[in-house]
Design a protein around this nucleic acid. Structure first.
Lengths: 415, 415
DNA sequence: AGCTTTTTTTCGAGCTTCGAAAAAAAGAAT
DNA sequence: ATTCTTTTTTTCGAAGCTCGAAAAAAAGCT
């Protein structure tokens, strides 16, 4: 069951730890690394010498702050951007984008295009994606390190192994094994992740002072998504990407949800739900899928202007999210929340009724521990999350070996 | 942040692994342990020799099944019951019990008594508990190994550090630092755990074929509790014992709950809720706290006999649990469920409406992965869970050192 | 130019695990 | 009864890792 620690695992783990310390810390010196990892200076010295030899790390002579201190100056270590490259692909409603990111996290190249995801055939969808990745990969020849990982984020549910898109609201097709497809096309290890999970990953590296051990990211757009970090680890379901906050039950047998069931949180708080409530279309009508961002902004403007059905619709959305969060907090305890996506622009309309609802739940009892922050633009976060996740794979699985097959051919590409 | 692996951690971890293998496996040979841990024979040999020297493990010559095989026969290893003792304490409604358990899991001695937990003063409650533990500890002098750990299970919420009972339905008193109290009285490291979490721990070691990596234990009695194992680890909240399934919201602003709020699952599915629905007392009446098990059995009998308010009350309980599980499954995906406690005896009345409700939720979509089993008697499970948890502490923190202070005085007591 | 301070490297000691070989402990065969 | 086989367990030397102490390096200060 649980596997023993072998002797060579030691080096592997400590290498990973050093790489991780450099990735988090920016430009730490060897002494700083020794401090945060509580390994001895000699060990850090040995490991970083290896990593520099292998071209994974670089020494930075020009320390930006020429500290006016006595003693031998610290030598900052940083990631070698050319050590490796990863590719990110993001598939969302009517939109496909991809990017190449270097080992230090810098964007090398990117591309994006509109795509009728709702109506396109499965084959065409895959073909377009492969073509975009092929263009980027082809264009990178020579000017970047070897591409060692692809991470694809989709709006929807993936399997627990992160290999297949099981279901997505943006396409009628199901069970598309994107990971296998990309791997056979490019020979690069690939995972398929939920977009909100990637948002959570990005928030952690983006605002570590706020999003650290435990936090929740809720994406408010056409549907409702969630990514959650608990005890420092990204939360996923036992069989899928999990965390389908939008499909927790708000009102049993209530409003019709896009998923075909009734009473989900999303059926009150998704854009389409707010829209149909604001336009008095009743709770059973499924509107055409394309409510634009502009439509929603106008709706919000009208809601702010006078107390009418629009304002009530946003209030109901807040209630649904509030009671949903209350139930979630009953399970995991309160944690900081990030409201991400277009819905963040109408958060002022949602917040009052949401807070009121939370206060009426047992989960809201430690209301001091609950705080909200908004991030209107989700796309950069999703891409950054994909990049961070892909780089974490490279850090741990490739540059901190344990897998001889992958490390074998690495020497030629590096430096 | 994340701490590096030092060289001596290696031994510590592998010692822990060997002890764990013996605890799970019963009476494995060295070769079997080498197989399951994937450590080399030489390493297992060295570690088990040490552990036998220290009196933690014993060799069992008389292999029960004298295997008619060629070759040198395997020597079974088992835990030395006298290596250590742990104490378990269980505090539940009007009832206090405690036990001494040897290192191999055998009960050495136990004691229990009625106690008016609802009305008793805080001091008296603590005094009774300390007295019971003192009697057991005193009586064990000489006939058992040193007592190295106490685990107390309470019905209610504890802090994340497992040191304090924050709130409990069985007493009006809050924030009782039981761990510190027991530690200062006996000088033995102590933790305070939620009873349902201990039920989950017990189920895993009890029926490992069913309850392994992911499962849920739901306690149906006066209130509703939950313990959950996800990805092999006991799930706890970020700031408390967490997992308050009973206080997820079933109907916003619905029936009055014992917690003072409205619409919680428990306000429909707790014994008191079923009772007031069956007796047409409305959803706002809080009945006297003492609905006996016999009362509930009679209620169930009447519900089975004819279709009346009693049957409807159980049906409503099933709906509340079903929608609650649906929301939970939306977050974590479906998993096997154990229905524990007195409510399991009325599960036939609850199940149909519960399954119907789950089927109407997004979380119920993989209904094949959901299965239910009942365990009517929770008390033995809680005690066993406490014992397993206490022994796990001894296994990992004391017999697999890393903490010199604790290991220092051990030599004298052991064998 | 020499002293002080701080960082980094070097080097030997002490663990730990591993693989191979040896030893031990049985049943099977002659 | 004694000698093979087979399987488990122990022993032993090799290799690798981390650690602490000391040395080296690289500055500023006097």
């Amino acid at each position: 069951m649980t596997v023993g620690i072998r002797h060579d695992d030691l080096r592997r783990r400590n290498r990973g730890m050093v790489i991780g310390a450099v990735r988090r810390n920016g430009q730490p010196s060897r002494t700083e690394i020794a401090g945060t990892t509580s390994l001895s200076h000699s060990t850090i010295s040995a490991i970083s010498a290896d990593l520099i030899d292998e071209g994974v790390l670089l020494e930075t002579k020009s320390n930006e702050a020429p500290t006016v201190k006595r003693g031998r100056p610290q030598v900052a270590l940083r990631l070698n951007p050319e050590a490796a490259t990863v590719a990110t692909v993001v598939l969302s409603l009517n939109y496909l984008s991809a990017a190449l990111v270097d080992y230090a996290g810098g964007v090398i190249d990117d591309e994006h295009q509109e795509l009728p995801t709702v109506t396109i055939s499965k084959d065409a969808l895959v073909t377009e994606m492969l073509a975009m990745v092929r263009r980027l990969v082809g264009g990178a020849k020579g000017r970047a390190g070897p591409i060692l990982r692809i991470v694809l984020a989709i709006q929807g549910i993936t399997d627990a192994g992160a290999r297949t898109m099981l279901w997505s609201p943006i396409t009628p097709h199901t069970d598309i094994p994107f990971a296998a497809m990309l791997e056979s096309a490019f020979g690069i290890p690939t995972t398929v992740e939920n977009d909100c999970n990637m948002i959570a990953v990005a928030l952690r590296s983006h605002k570590p002072e706020r999003y650290r051990e435990d936090f929740i990211a809720i994406l408010l757009s056409h549907g409702i998504g969630m990514g959650m970090v608990l005890k420092g680890d990204l939360f996923t379901g036992t069989q899928s990407s999990g965390g389908e906050f939008g499909h927790m039950i708000h009102i049993p047998d209530g409003a019709l949800c896009r998923c075909g069931r009734r009473g989900c949180v999303e059926a009150y708080a998704g854009n389409y739900a707010i829209w149909r409530n604001a336009t008095r279309h009743g709770q059973d009508k499924m509107p055409a899928a394309d409510i634009t961002d502009v439509d929603m902004l106008e709706l919000a403007a009208r809601a702010r202007a006078h107390d009418g059905p629009e304002r009530l619709a946003f209030r109901k959305a807040g209630e649904a999210i509030g009671f949903g969060l209350g139930s979630l907090f009953a399970l995991i305890d309160p944690a900081p929340v990030a409201i991400v996506g277009q819905g963040a622009l109408a958060f002022d309309l949602i917040e009052p009724s949401m807070l009121e609802a939370i206060a009426r739940t047992a989960g809201g009892q430690h209301s001091k521990a609950i705080s909200f922050d908004t991030e209107p633009d989700e796309m950069p976060l999703i891409r950054e999350g994909c990049a961070m996740r892909a780089l974490a794979f490279v850090d741990q699985e490739i540059f901190a070996p344990g897998n001889e097959l992958l490390t074998a051919g690495r020497g030629e590409h590096v430096a």
